[in-house]
Design a binder for these strands. Sequence first.
DNA 1: TGAGCTAAGGCGAACGTTCGCGCGAACGTT
DNA 2: AACGTTCGCGCGAACGTTCGCCTTAGCTCA
Lengths: 351, 351
Amino acid sequence: MSRVTLKDVAARAGVSYQTVSKVLNGRAQVTEETHQRIWDAVRELDYRPNISARNLRKQASNLIGYPLHYGGDDFVHPVLDAFLHSIANAAEADGFHILTFAAADPRDPSPYRELYYRNQVGGFILADVNRNDPRVEMLIEQSIPFTAFGRANDEWDYHWVDVDGRTGMRQVVEHLLAQGHERIALITWPGGSRTGSARENGYRLALQSAGLLLDAELIVRGLNAARTGREAFQQLWRLPAERRPTAVACVSDLIALGVLHAANGAGLVVGAELAITGFDDVTLTAYTQPPLTTVRQPIAEVGEATVAMVLGQILEREQPEKGILLPPQLIIRGSSMRGTAVEAAGARPST
Amino acid sequence: MSRVTLKDVAARAGVSYQTVSKVLNGRAQVTEETHQRIWDAVRELDYRPNISARNLRKQASNLIGYPLHYGGDDFVHPVLDAFLHSIANAAEADGFHILTFAAADPRDPSPYRELYYRNQVGGFILADVNRNDPRVEMLIEQSIPFTAFGRANDEWDYHWVDVDGRTGMRQVVEHLLAQGHERIALITWPGGSRTGSARENGYRLALQSAGLLLDAELIVRGLNAARTGREAFQQLWRLPAERRPTAVACVSDLIALGVLHAANGAGLVVGAELAITGFDDVTLTAYTQPPLTTVRQPIAEVGEATVAMVLGQILEREQPEKGILLPPQLIIRGSSMRGTAVEAAGARPST
DNA sequence: TGAGCTAAGGCGAACGTTCGCGCGAACGTT
DNA sequence: AACGTTCGCGCGAACGTTCGCCTTAGCTCA
């Protein structure tokens, strides 16, 4: 590996190696001329600092840990993929890198402790936190730097970045109301998911503002899978015709895909006869039949904000706030438009 | 961060700290009794080694670099996502971790040099190599340890793991032939892609073995995007009826999705009137309408083999071979089955 | 009894940094 | 001319490991 050290550079520049270190770190008190000599030597020798040595000396690490939960069975979340890209990018702007590790059991905090106390990482970024997540609890308790994409509950005090799902779902439902729908179903996760509650609240708020009553039989719950959507559709379609929904809002694109699939299978013209909306803007949703109306999360911004926050803790910078809530964006496509389903099907995905 | 060092453990166990190090690394010459005392002290103090110190001393790193190319505009490859999970898992079994870094320009080798010569990583894993990939060239030339998922060309001598796309595509086409198809189109990438050539060869071989002539107008090329599929479908459908294909084999699921979409839009019954197949088994393909026949790559095995190979180089172990070719698996679903499209649409994805 | 051997563990050194203190020379001030 | 101050840079130490060599005690055997 790298054989060129500070001493080599120093020898060539005719100074002590500690001086080289200072110059490279900008803490120098040197003449313009030696400054030049040192930088010339650095370039000629192609010197690069040894990160392990630096980390050891500084008692720190230039790595941020990021757990990979393997969805294993069924589905890898594309949003998290984009999130990873985003944090890697943002971290590198500050000389940090992302260390990914496999967290087989997403509730087990021990890999986090291990990495941190081995000085392998200086902090963590979590995505996909659950209500009362034990990892978050542990990290808070041990005061290990971290920032989460999502909130575990309303009490715990820690750094987070989140997307305002309530407003997002509210926009969806208001869009459906504007299309003339009055019986709007919601397919959501089982209770206990914070993200789910936020989106559900948006649904309730929109209905309430429109002066509509909530109908409990229009809310169906299930895991985050396409089959949940399929089964929910069947359940809703068993209702007598006048109690059936004319629109179905789903808390995820994956569920919406299941509904779409089942509705297509039942011979319905999605868009005209039944409106369907998703949530998250998984890339493929632009290519379904018809293209799926959904809510796009500003993942790049989320990533940047998350990195800024965790680096703030690690480098002990000033922190403006402990929580950041970013607004999502409604993407309207054919699956929720009455007349235009056929034309929309051939259109390019909107941007 | 961690405050417990070897010296603390040593003090508690009543030995020198170097002895503790030896015991923990199994290089010990100690009585059973001191062995016990040391391990007790380790547990009581909850000691963990400082990775930076270890890496510095050993002149090595326990990290493997893995570049993240942001597809940015359109699509994040789900196969690579599964691959990342897989290598993270495999690496951890040997005490290594994956450092992900953003490689904005996938042709630029400089981030690789930087990471390696800073001693930040001990080697690299590349996915998605291109023909005559300049990164591969550089890594070979500087003899930096790495293993690639995919081959850059036939001449360069380096460690790789690959999936046998030729056999995969051959299986696809043989399946289509068995379904009675004789005019089978291929939608593939522009020339120059090694992966593409392999799959194309499989296509040619299958036709040849069946005694069929190749028809150049049935081969359409374009980038890896859904719109390529859409446009290819339109181009093929402009042909006079007797020269149109009855089946379309695509080199990726994404392209197949575009074809599927366009065929549905044109009112065709996919499966019965037109067979469509993809490649890669992106998870969502099980939920298209109808579900997509595709080829599944054994990603977990690829990941394990890749990690084993790069660790072999880093740790200077014996290497059995420099290249490993793994067989893919044909997954038959509704989009290529004549009579069963409707029933298959409701079925769970096959495993 | 003393030479030789082995087992058990101590010791010094080194990996490449960063950081605070110290020191001499040049300079300005009285 | 003597004295303080600043500038420019060197020096020692430390971060926590690993590794090879050395020391000592106890034992065997001629």
